[in-house]
Simulated assay, not measured.
Amino acid sequence: MTDDHEHGHPEDPPTWSELTISSWVLNDRVQKLHASIESNWDPLQRSACQTAAGRALWRHVTNDVLAELLAGETYLRSFYEKIRKDRLNHAREISGVILAVRTLWFDSKLETAVGLLNNEALQIVLLGAGMDTRAYRLNCLTGSHVFEVDFPQVLQMKASLLQEAMKSMDNQQKIAVKAKALISVEADIRGKDWLEKLQYSGFIPEKNTVWILEGLLYYLSDADAIQVLKTIAAHCSLTPTVLLADFMNKPSITLSNPNFQFYSDWPDQLLPSLGFSDVKLSQIGDPDAHFGLLHDPSNMFDKLRSIPRSVEVDPDDGTPCCRLYLVQASGSPSKNTCISP
């Protein structure tokens, strides 16, 4: 990351330009691959491209040069239209700012965790990896084995898009993997065999691990989400472990997306009950979840921070208090040696 990111203050508010689509996105073969996504993927799977589009359009802070390719033209144009309308309406929060803050928060906490778990055999597991590109863009992962777990069709499409872009010599440096190793694990996290498939792919339970659950849990049923968290918590009894995850509260899943299911109003209480320790919770707009991106002094995130978390409806205007919690937790075989990312 750049020095600006590390200090939590990128440049001044961005000057948004007109949308330009790179040639590698407009490549005929890439266009055909993305057309098959539109035809064959369900809304849950397509959300990976929507997220990539957000990272691409906030590239001035996310530094994600591959996101445009992985998003595709349709989602880039759709997301840009939302940003354009927000600018015309002088919105207090530009579309995608939550996604940008979330990306930077996970990046920064991952970098800290890697430093604390300094270990040549460190494992990073991205559950529901989608179109994530951390293995390609974060220098802190040069000594780590990165496992990306997701649906077979998602990981296969991601590989096909990257391979197509690699045919151009100009793109090969952009697509170089920075992680020590990058392993794709084709598995449905809602099933019972994803951990077995992860281990079959080379994951070693006894080695220090950082688990990343970004934009994942709220798509799962309550039972599946709790089971995933319990599985990771059990890993804490074997070796020092860090969990990085985001949680929506009840108003968020009710209003935001029909595909959202699981929520937790108090993840900092839920995780200790499952076996995690040293749980730290942030909300968008907190000092470690701001990154200089919330420029309007009356933005809704600062307002939410001033309203008790137990309150579901804003007492001033009656709007639901939709919150996104960014949570880090840890665990260790010895309760006295819990790590603190």
Score class of each variant (00 low, 15 high):
4 D>N: 09
6 E>N: 10
8 G>R: 06
9 H>L: 14
9 H>M: 07
17 S>G: 08
18 E>V: 03
18 E>R: 14
20 T>Y: 10
21 I>S: 14
26 L>F: 02
29 R>S: 10
34 H>S: 01
40 N>F: 08
41 W>A: 06
42 D>F: 05
53 A>H: 01
55 R>A: 10
55 R>I: 07
58 W>E: 01
59 R>I: 11
68 E>W: 08
74 T>V: 13
78 S>M: 09
88 L>C: 08
88 L>N: 12
88 L>R: 15
99 L>I: 15
106 F>D: 02
112 T>H: 00
116 L>E: 08
118 N>Q: 12
119 N>M: 04
121 A>R: 13
122 L>A: 01
127 L>R: 01
146 V>T: 09
147 F>N: 03
148 E>C: 07
149 V>M: 05
150 D>Q: 06
156 Q>K: 13
165 A>N: 09
169 M>H: 13
172 Q>L: 10
173 Q>A: 15
176 A>Y: 06
180 K>V: 01
196 E>L: 13
197 K>L: 13
197 K>E: 13
199 Q>H: 08
204 I>M: 08
216 L>M: 04
221 S>M: 09
229 L>V: 11
230 K>G: 06
230 K>A: 10
238 L>K: 14
239 T>F: 00
242 V>C: 08
242 V>G: 01
247 F>V: 10
247 F>I: 11
250 K>Q: 13
250 K>F: 03
252 S>H: 07
258 P>K: 14
264 S>A: 12
270 L>E: 11
271 L>K: 08
274 L>W: 06
276 F>A: 03
278 D>N: 15
283 Q>F: 10
284 I>E: 00
288 D>H: 13
294 L>N: 09
294 L>I: 15
299 N>F: 00
299 N>R: 12
308 P>M: 13
329 A>F: 11
330 S>A: 15
330 S>F: 10
335 K>S: 14
339 I>H: 05
